[in-house]
Write a protein that binds this DNA or RNA. Sequence first.
RNA 1: GCCGAUGUGGCUCAGAGGCAGAGCAGCUGAUUCGUAAUCAGCAGGUCGGCGGUUCGAAUCCGCCCAUCGGCUCCA
Length: 636
Amino acid sequence: MVNISLPDGRHREYQEGTSLLQIAEDISPKLAKNAVAAVFNDKVTDLTTLVYKDGKVQFLDFDHEKARNVYRHSSSHVMAQAVKRLWPETKFAIGPAIDKGFYYDFDTDHTFTPDDFALIEKEMNSIIKSDYPIVRRELSKEEAIQFFADRKEDYKVELIRDLPDDAIISVYQQGEFVDLCAGPHLPSTGKVKAIKLMSLAGAYWRGDENKKMLQRIYATSFPKQVMLDDYLHKLEEARKRDHRKLGKELGLFVLLDEGPGFPFFLPKGMVIRNELENFWRQAHQQAGYQEIRTPIILNRELWEQSGHWDHYKDNMYFTKIDDQDFAVKPMNCPGGILVYKQNLHSYREFPLRTCEMGLVHRHEMSGVLHGLMRVRAFTQDDAHIFMLPEQIIAEIKGVMELVDLFYKQFGFTYHVELSTQPEKSMGTKEVWDAATDALKEALEGQGMAYKINAGDGAFYGPKIDFHLQDSLDRTWQCGTIQLDFQMPEKFDLTYIGEDGEKHRPVMIHRVIYGSMERFIGIITEHFGGAFPAWLAPVQVRVLPITEKQHEYAAQVMDNLKAAGIRAESDPRSEKIGYKIREGQLQKIPYLLILGDKEVQSGTVAVRHRKEGDLGQQGLEAFSAMVSAEIKDKVIR
RNA sequence: GCCGAUGUGGCUCAGAGGCAGAGCAGCUGAUUCGUAAUCAGCAGGUCGGCGGUUCGAAUCCGCCCAUCGGCUCCA
């Protein structure tokens, strides 16, 4: 007999060789029904695992991330099996679970099209209906290579060859289909319920662009049809919020064939952009920054000195002026450094904080451009801080507080990642360790939880990245703080210390919005186009019901404009319902409906885009309310 | 850059070898209306670009450009 302990502290005895699934059934049929995988002695494992020793067990349902991955992974095997049945020549690469589903990479002469989806789904459903048991087997490395070589599964053979010689290699079988897989898996194919193939994509074998491009099918699966429907509905909602769609509908910006990756900002988009800049400028003045502006085009020598000419050339644009080589700046730091070098600096000036709305150009590959999120010309809300080594921690804390102030303003939550020394980097390990420790200390001093991205730092120093989460739970990297001991060296930056001697300053590079373009894209999706009043291109629209109220409408307009509110009126001879509809679609925060009643009482009938009809208010009261909402940057 | 798809009035889309269409938006006129679409008329397109096949190409073929979904990369 084996003694099994359960999460609630109870113990049960079972025959040796009892499966975890049987144990679950013994505890409760419902538990067994919902169980996707089990954790036995702290290891996630198949429900079909037979128990031969004492241990503690916990059953995981679909709500657990680990179980969800098992569920999706088994789903990917079902998809692979279906594809193999339909196109027997297909070779398999890998088919993992991912965040919201799974994919499988195939190598086949058949080119998949979305028309194949119905066919594959049908076959998958037939496999699910057959409810094949999913059986684990273990082979030696040699046996496994032989097994997959016989089946001409070249990719699997390559994968196995990379495993250690003494590795025990597991394969999972369902019906006629066998796949190399570490597992764990569902007990049978019938456990998979609602499936949907989502999209097709090319993907390089092992993510290497020099290797063969395979065909990837993305799909997802859920244990209940309603969960799948709900997921698809959310995707649909996300599409409605797509900043490219909203940007067009709300007249914020356009991307044209004439300038791929170079966005045009339209008048309404510029209002948002300017408001973001105003907020930025005011917050930075308060935080002790001095604003500068450096040129977009600078000569070759500068870029050679900074290292960009050698290390960043593929991403840069070049030009010639009077036969001399120049480059369009891909980063602002060399310009900022030149500004620093205009004066002799004393330690008394430190920390010296300079900030710049810096327009940079980077040549991105055509395939990666994406609305405002990934462009070829963008403005960074950059800053370079020069300081003493002993000021690092306090200064980083200061930047983190500023970042927090900014993100809270938009209602974003965020998490932090720390990236450490990459393989290709400048400087000694000691300097890197000191810098990395300084960042850690600053993070810990702020009580900030963080994740480490080993080897993901910039070539000149480690960095902290801020990833903010939007209203659809997607994350975006925006802010970064990079500690740099290298550029000061390359550019021979100095300051005069207390001792009267020259010393080397430390430098921080940092952005908060990241890029104005991307940030505008993100907040457009985050707010679904319904920007808070302080950002809204039009804050109030005045809607006279008939021509009789035009004069009063003009008075109201004058009043609002005098109060500094962005107001416009819609005097067209359309029905009020029509004007309201248009105002709603434009997501204008407030619509003022003006009829005879309002004219007589000298009031305005207020409609809020989300809260609907708010009733009549005095014009002064309304104006004061909106002004306060704008001033306090209220999200409503 | 690579794989796949797409490209038709300002917008959303139909048309799949034989006269370029619809709805919305726009303009003109009528209507003067109370919280998400009033009616009528008018105007608007070298069907992404270049080349080819054909008596005839938006439609078939080739190349290029851009966009979309991914790979890779990143603010």
